[in-house]
Design a protein around this nucleic acid. Sequence first.
DNA 1: ACTCAGTGTAAGCCATCGCTTACGGTAAGC
DNA 2: GCTTACCGTAAGCGATGGCTTACACTGAGT
Lengths: 103, 103
Amino acid sequence: MPNALTALSALGDPTRRAIFERLARQPRSVGQLARGLPVSRPAVSQHLQVLKSAGLVAVHAEGARRIYSVDPHGLGQIRAWLDRFWDKALDAFRAEVEKDPPK
Amino acid sequence: MPNALTALSALGDPTRRAIFERLARQPRSVGQLARGLPVSRPAVSQHLQVLKSAGLVAVHAEGARRIYSVDPHGLGQIRAWLDRFWDKALDAFRAEVEKDPPK
DNA sequence: ACTCAGTGTAAGCCATCGCTTACGGTAAGC
DNA sequence: GCTTACCGTAAGCGATGGCTTACACTGAGT
């Protein structure tokens, strides 16, 4: 059961972000992803495993190929985590600026 | 000039998330942060450096102490990055579910 | 049945990174 | 001026993690 923390950690890696962004444009197979990236196919497969366990992507078999697509679940958890700090951060920032205005 | 990628990478580390969450509740000094965390003070200082260069926290001197507070700039960039995929991810997910409903 | 495309996993290597200890440098109090 | 608190940085170490190569498995086509 992935939480927002695992999703954030998963997207902390640049290669995984690249994979995720490509899947957001269009669902693809593992080989398709690997062909457009500077890493090997097994590397892509491992990254997909991480993204999947973080609730960021989903798979469905299509013959021998595994088609990966974006799963909004993981993004939702990151967004929820973000929103917990959004207003608070703005308020804290404003208070800080008042007492010590930036140069 | 930090972008959304550096902010995401910065928050990929659990310790940095802990530091950031504490700063969101209230601005603190380096020593205060270190006292509530299972790592040494220099470690906290290094993490703060990363968070600062990612636009996630800001500093202002108060005597010999450096008070760190949350900077909403970094959060805003993450949010912008997230919103770029939000609708797209939802649509793609719905289309995927239609053609291959989950078990 | 055989071949081939497509994929996941294991093993291992190497760079990155988070952490510690040690040191130097600044600001406040006596 | 001296001491003390507070902090940043350097150096070094150990572990994590991303990558590659090699192997095993499944499904489609002939």
